[in-house]
Amino acid sequence: MTTDLHTPDNESLIEFPCDFKLKAMGKNCESFVELVYQVTIKHAPETPRENIEITDSKGQKFVSVNITFYATSIQQVHGIYGDLKKHPEVLMTL
């Protein structure tokens, strides 16, 4: 199920600017964490590495990467999620 972050008149339901936490899931490897971080800093270059949180799946085959960044607009958020969804290593985003 996809949740639209817009109201009918195309205004965001999120007040910007704000801290925004994204989540991306993929196979458990260091390159996946780096991929999610690189996509994030492409759109939010001031995001420090310290804002990365990693959670392994129960069997440790998969990983959830959470990154909190300072979001300035809905277009910025959509840009990050759009780039992540295009990448074959990304299994899911929230």
Rank of each mutant, 00 (worst) to 15 (best):
V90E: 01
K23Q: 14
I14V: 12
H87P: 03
P8A: 13
D19E: 12
L22N: 03
G82I: 08
Y81P: 04
T2W: 05
I14K: 02
S57W: 06
P45V: 04
V33I: 15
V90H: 02
R49K: 15
G59P: 00
L84I: 07
I52W: 06
Y37A: 09
D56L: 14
F69H: 01
I67P: 00
T55K: 15
P45F: 04
Y37N: 04
D19S: 08
A24G: 09
Q76C: 07
I14C: 03
S12V: 03
T3P: 01
E34V: 13
Y81L: 14
I52T: 15
E15K: 13
N51E: 08
I52Q: 08
P48Q: 05
Y37F: 15
K27R: 11
S73I: 12
D19K: 12
H6M: 15
L35Q: 04
H87K: 06
N28W: 02
T55S: 10
A24V: 10
P45S: 07
Q75Y: 08
M92T: 08
V36P: 01
A44W: 02
T93F: 07
C18E: 02
I74A: 10
D4R: 06
P48D: 05
K21I: 12
M92H: 09
D4P: 00
L13M: 09
I14Q: 00
F62I: 03
H6W: 13
E46M: 08
H78D: 12
D4A: 09
F16Q: 05
T7K: 15
K27T: 12
C29A: 09
F20Y: 15
Y81K: 09
I14N: 00
F62S: 07
Q38N: 15
T55F: 14
P17W: 05
G82Q: 11
E11P: 00
F20Q: 02
Q76W: 04
Y37V: 10
V39I: 15
V90L: 06
K86F: 04
V65Q: 02
P88I: 13
T72H: 14
L13T: 10
F32I: 06
K27I: 07
T2E: 11
T2Y: 10
T2F: 10
Q38R: 14
K58L: 08
L94W: 11
F20R: 05
D4C: 14
K61W: 04
A71Y: 04
Y70N: 11
Q75H: 10
K27W: 05
D83L: 03
E46N: 11
S12A: 13
E89N: 10
I41R: 01
K85S: 14
G26R: 04
I80Y: 02
A24L: 07
F62N: 07
D83Q: 03
N66W: 09
Q75W: 01
E53K: 14
K86S: 09
D56N: 14
F20A: 02
L35H: 04
Y70M: 13
T55L: 12
V63G: 01
E34C: 07
H78L: 15
S57Y: 07
S64H: 07
H43A: 01
T3H: 13
K85V: 10
A44P: 02
V77I: 13
F16D: 01
D19F: 12
H43T: 01
E34G: 04
K42R: 15
F32K: 01
S12G: 01
K23L: 15
V65S: 03
K23Y: 06
